[in-house]
Design a protein around this nucleic acid. Structure first.
Lengths: 153, 153
DNA sequence: ATTGGTGCAAATCGTTTGCATTATG
DNA sequence: CATAATGCAAACGATTTGCACCAAT
């Protein structure tokens, strides 16, 4: 999505220092589509930085969030991180807990933007960003559940 | 919203036992509009049940959620509880952390329902419920911030 | 040379769990 | 009466914090 050059430029705007660790973490999150958890980010980065700890990852994610590059998505058990700041819909499977962006029909983007405008016009609330999650069963888990029912108990 | 009689009926459908504690907790959450935290629920209930503990509240909230009467809304620091299961938009102030339902223009309900239909028609994902949060500054905090700027550093 | 970042360990705190006692159906 | 719920205390685990050492500017 964002090449390393652009990334460095974006980082210089806000983070006082650009470190290789931060670059690696930013690259992993910004190029992900599965809304990784801190653990997952850790696993994807530790190949390059075996000494890196979770504290550094948490710290960097905080910086990325403040800079507006990513969004923390708190869930029941732990947070996930969203690199797609465009208005969109997340599909959250309540069975396997995977989170994906809803198939990006451009209309969805516009509908969410429209909702946002509607709020802006009808209240004094200043919207900065939004989170739209649809919870349910992904096709895979839905299937599994149906099959499971037949043999249950 | 729901009187005690109806509440008992709803509870009989799912919870094996209807206890006074559960009734009190359910009543507090279902009649709230401020998306209370567990602590807030605790404070609102302990007048009637001084011996009640957080464990009981967590347990009851779990039952209410499984029954489809409420929805847990995880946030960064702690969860809040949403008694409004109708499609709607929450306005979350990033300053004071208050959460309110967006002014209930009926159009908003329909737009969210429309989004939901759009997802249903274009994927095999089975949506069960949704969460739509808009983050930003409430009028009060927005004002405070503007005033604050003038005297800042 | 300064200042902020990383890595490590300890602390925090919301939430969960185990179990004895109590109350519902 | 049988069984599930409550209350209490301990356990858990994600996230945060403090600090010494190291690196970016």
């Amino acid at each position: 999505m964002l090449n390393q050059q652009e990334l460095v430029e974006r980082m210089r705007e806000w983070a006082v220092r650009v470190t290789p660790q931060r670059l690696a973490i930013a690259e992993v999150v910004l190029n992900s589509t599965d809304h990784p958890t801190v653990q997952q980010i850790y696993e994807r980065v530790k190949g390059h930085f075996p000494s890196m700890t979770l504290a550094t990852i948490y710290s960097t994610l905080g910086v990325l969030q403040k800079s507006g590059l990513i969004q923390e998505l708190p869930f029941q058990k732990q947070s996930r991180y969203e690199p797609n700041m465009e208005p969109h819909v997340n599909l959250v499977c309540i069975e396997c807990e995977n989170v994906i962006d809803a198939d990006t029909d451009p209309a969805v983007h516009d509908v969410v933007l429209g909702l946002r405008k509607q709020i802006a016009d009808n209240s004094d609330f200043e919207v900065a960003w939004q989170r739209v999650d649809f919870y349910g069963l992904c096709p895979r888990c839905s299937e599994a559940k149906k099959r499971g029912q037949l043999s249950e108990v």
